[in-house]
């Protein structure tokens, strides 16, 4: 604890020395491979934020890993690249704490400001992070469960396509909390790996559950593809069942537009990247720091009420 304070103090002093006068923030944003749909949204957020930073005379450099094969070392390499470029601040998620924390600590010791987004809130103190912009699986699930219960659901089926996956189980825990607070019950359905990403198998499994238990009146899936499967299952069960899912896909949005799916829970990566980048620049340039910490960027619920705006966002690459 003492050490950490010392580090932070040293970092602050160093930054005062470095940033000194009116030189605007030069920022590096580190992210995952652009092949990933998720990081396409992140990039859009960074690109838009860069306009703001540049308007104040700063620069934004967007650094990504090529793939996830050698993830920890690749991220450290990117951190070192950013440091050697002499940036004032780095916005970065912490995915591989054991690799990233030492590198980020040493960056912080050199006076570089660290802003966190998407992942790693638990190591924020260690690396002297300014703030965290991301979502919380439990909170997202809670919002989804409460939403369904308020729409009239009495018994919600929570489908987990990878049993034991920590983030999916957390989502389901959240759904249970949100539903029970609003008078609904939840049934968890973990389906074995033998039907993971098998749409027909998953669809038939969900249908069998719906046929067996007529009191199920809502389904929430943990992935967009699983809600494709759930749609057919619900059609064939032959009774109205509310359908919600985590994450967006073109077919999910089409169904919400057509009214065959109730909602989708979005963690809004655009907001994570946009806010992390602009707030890092604002901290360096103007000393602005938000009292809300961490800042949750999700869940954003897409339903019939805001689907048109969401579709515009999709076309623009922001959702």
């Amino acid at each position: 604890m003492m050490n950490m304070r010392k580090n932070m103090l040293a970092a602050m002093l160093a930054s005062v020395a470095l940033t000194g006068a009116a030189s605007a923030a030069d920022i590096a944003v580190i992210a995952g491979s652009a092949n990933d749909a998720f990081f396409n949204r992140v990039k859009k957020g960074v690109d838009d934020a860069a306009l703001v930073v540049q308007a104040n005379g700063g620069t934004v450099n967007y650094l990504t890993t090529q793939n996830y094969d050698n993830f920890g070392p690749d991220l450290v390499q990117l951190i070192n690249t950013a440091v050697s470029q002499g940036v004032d601040g780095i916005a970065i998620p912490v995915w591989v704490a054991e690799s990233q924390v030492p590198a980020l600590k040493s960056a912080a010791d050199q006076g570089i400001k660290i802003m966190m987004y998407n992942s790693g809130a638990e190591v924020k103190e260690q690396i002297a992070g300014i703030n965290y912009f991301g979502s919380d699986e439990f909170v997202a699930g809670e919002a989804g469960g409460a939403y369904m219960a308020k729409k009239g659901a009495k018994k919600i089926l929570c489908h987990i396509h990878v049993p034991g996956a920590v983030n999916l189980e957390r989502r389901c825990d959240g759904i249970v909390a949100g539903a029970e607070a609003n008078g609904a019950t939840v049934m968890r359905l973990p389906t074995p790996a033998s039907i993971d990403s098998d749409v027909t198998g998953t669809s038939e499994a969900l249908k069998a559950e719906l046929l067996k238990d007529p009191s199920i009146d809502a389904v929430i899936t943990m992935g967009a593809w699983a809600s494709d499967a759930a749609t057919i299952a619900i059609q064939q069960a032959g009774r109205p069942v509310l359908l919600g899912t985590f994450d967006l896909s073109p077919s999910v949005l089409e169904r919400i537009k057509a009214g065959t799916q109730t909602m989708a829970i979005d963690q809004q990566p655009y907001a994570q990247a946009f806010l992390a980048t602009t707030m890092l620049a604002a901290y360096i340039d103007f000393g602005i720091d938000l009292p809300t910490d961490p800042v949750l960027t999700g869940p954003g619920i897409v339903d019939a009420g805001n689907i048109d705006a969401a579709l515009v966002g999709v076309a623009a690459g922001a959702r």
Binding site: S194, S197, D198, G201, D228, A229, T231, S249, P250
Partner: peptide, 20 residues
Amino acid sequence: CQTILFNSAQVSTGMSFIFN
């Protein structure tokens, strides 16, 4: 056939098909 049936396609692997 799955794309036509579910009106949707995604780049997830069908690894389960190999084993099954």
